[in-house]
Amino acid sequence: MATQPEILTKSFELGYTYTRSTGPLIGRFLTGLRERRIHGVRASDGRVIVPPAEYDPQTAAALDELVPVADTGTVTTWCWVCEPLAHHLLPHPFAFALVRLDGADVPLLHLVDAGDETAMRTGMRVRARWSDDPRGSITDIACFEPV
């Protein structure tokens, strides 16, 4: 007579049980945002890259010299989102833009809340609008707005 096989059971909950560190460089940048300070990193050729790159875009050398930069800057290119998508952070038409912050050489990607496309132009000056509840994320800068 065959014996019943022993059936092992275990409850299971699908979940990601790890946390992920942003590392020494990105982590310092994001922590700075929580305190409403923006840092770039000095690249091998002396240029300041914002947000900081862990490795040089040309030489791939590890980078670690953080440099404070301003929360004001200049738009180097932009586009106007006429009909925002559900994921977009602003519910009304806005611009994505590359903004070269004062003190930086390499521009960062962010949003500009300009109200209307006619208020946008390459070379315009903008200032960061900070989130009321900074959490250490690139979205601690809610967006930029025309100065």
Partner: peptide, 24 residues
Amino acid sequence: PYYHVPLWPDSVSMAALQARALLD
């Protein structure tokens, strides 16, 4: 995932940034 995705720049907007730079 840290610098770009939270801002949700979509593929058309990314291309449009490039197009503006080319026109400029």
